[in-house]
């Protein structure tokens, strides 16, 4: 039975890029949600630093993030609104613009990795078979805008269910691999959302470094107020 299913899968035509990315976005970035996540940054010297944050996502890819731990960044907030990223610094009592490709808190994710996850809008490309991984599709993506997180991305997603990420490789315009990610620990977050709870992002330039993002909760049923995404709301 399994082999028959596998044979069926193998003979399948690849789905359209649009279809795969729509599924990927639905899994990784539902229209609205409220979440709690932890990031652990592992540095070259073996030391680690953990960050705890609350995340709110609104329609039209608006996102807001509150840092809760460690004490050094408590009270810092990040906001993404349209193409712009902002960080609110509590000691300066003001919001400052950030570049989308800056490191997220000195870890190995960049700001856009965390705050901007709409692949349908940012990328276009092709879906192919990977002869070594019969149960997955590999999606080769090129950035549509310079604001996207990377110039090109290779993303391995499961065929069943379609669009669940397994592995990703992230490249510069010149084709150099900057980072690679592993998506693991698929978890049921309730309300029909099943997604990887853990993302391990490896720095392919400074190979001793990597960061882990662990999603503790993602509540897609939470009510998300539109007022939370105004620049003037930061710090309140």
């Amino acid at each position: 039975m399994t082999s028959l299913l596998l044979a069926l899968l193998l003979s399948a035509e690849p789905p359209s890029t649009k279809e795969v990315l729509a599924k990927y976005d639905a899994i990784m970035a539902p229209p609205t949600f409220k979440a709690v996540a932890q990031m652990t940054a592992h540095r070259d010297d073996g030391s680690t630093r953990g960050y705890k944050m609350a995340i709110l996502k609104g329609v039209d890819d608006k996102m807001r993030l509150w840092f809760q731990e460690p004490a050094a960044v408590r009270g810092q907030e990040m906001l993404r609104n349209g193409e712009n990223f902002w960080v609110y610094m509590p000691n300066l009592k003001r919001a400052l613009r950030l570049a989308s490709r800056d490191n997220f808190q000195g870890g190995d994710f960049n700001n856009a990795d965390v705050l901007r996850a709409n692949y349908t809008r940012d990328y276009e490309g092709t879906v192919k078979e990977d002869p070594k991984k019969a149960d997955q599709w590999v999606v080769e993506l090129k950035a549509k805008t310079p604001d996207s997180a990377y110039d090109s991305v290779k993303l391995w997603v499961t065929r069943e269910p379609l669009g669940m990420p397994v592995h990703g490789e992230y490249y510069t315009a010149s084709g150099k691999m900057l980072r690679s990610a592993d998506f693991s620990e698929v978890k049921d977050f309730g309300n029909g959302l099943k997604r990887p709870a853990k993302i391990t992002m490896r720095n392919e330039i400074a190979t001793q470094r990597f960061s882990e993002m662990l999603w503790e909760s993602v509540d897609v049923a939470a009510t998300v107020g539109e007022g939370k995404f105004g620049l003037s709301d930061l710090g309140h």
Partner: peptide
């Protein structure tokens, strides 16, 4: 001017 930099532990900080 606003200076933003990761501190010794990598956490973002800012100064005027």
């Amino acid at each position: 001017a606003v200076l933003l930099a990761p501190d010794r532990d990598g956490s973002l900080n800012g100064e005027l």
